[in-house]
Amino acid sequence: MIHWKKGALSAGIVLILVLIPLFVQRSDIITYLFLTLLYIILAQSWNILGGFTGQQNLGHAAFFGVGALTARYIWLHYGFPLPLAILGGGLATAAFALIIGFPAFRLRGVYFIIGTLVMAEILRMVFDNVFPRADVMPMKLLATYNLAPRYYVGLLFAVLSVVAVYWVNRSRIGLGMMSIREDEDAAEATGVNTLKYKLLAFAISTFMAGLAGGVFAYYTAATKVGDLFAPVWTFDAVIIVFVGGVGTIVGPIVGAVFFVLLKQLLSLYLPGGMHVLVFGVLFIVVVLYLPGGLIGLMAKLRKKPA
């Protein structure tokens, strides 16, 4: 019964999202919705490894960047059709992740966190130097640039990512991943091949981050390649997941809606860059006082007023 209601609600929301561009022409609203969808993909991808598997990866920007760069390159310069280019970006990202995953998972706890953070920064610096100039879309594409197809691509991959996380969460893979988060040694001792499941979670997570990168590559008219690897992609995703509700499926969605809206508002009314400060404080407050995030808060409030 509850299951059926949830399904109907989700279908309703998706239907409304599909119809919106037909009635709303304001580009700021479509941009807001697009960014929300993009961040849903990115946050869901981080949550697979960081939330469900308990491996906090602070180098997520690297995977967003590899996906974005690959997709944009093969789309613009090799003429791949867009869907194939985005998919290719995701696959290249997952392949790259598996290569660094073997050494990275030799590190545990805080060392894994530091290792991934450093790896992403190194990549950012390398790409900043290799491609010092901004990558701009060709004039032919810019002349016909339209937000609506970007929005629909974002919507498609956001829906796919939520469905994928939902499926993983209910499967044996999800069970193995969560057991690692709970207690890695105990997981190994009950028969979970922890390295295999960490690598699997890493591959799924980075594949989705690569897709998010590809969606962004399709959206952005011009970008410095180094910026695709900027730490902000990591930390935005982390903040969204924690504010929304870490290790849940709805959390990253709620978090993304809230985060993008707040970011737009704050950058309107606060002097440049100050919104980062607000998010920093917000993150600390959530981690300290609201470990369940907004999802946990809603569940608490629903229980109390009775």
Partner: peptide
């Protein structure tokens, strides 16, 4: 060595992994 944040059922399912 239980998985303290998971339900009894999930713990048992992990036993049969």
């Amino acid at each position: 060595g239980l998985f303290p944040g998971m339900s009894v059922l999930e713990n048992l399912e992990l036993g049969a992994f």
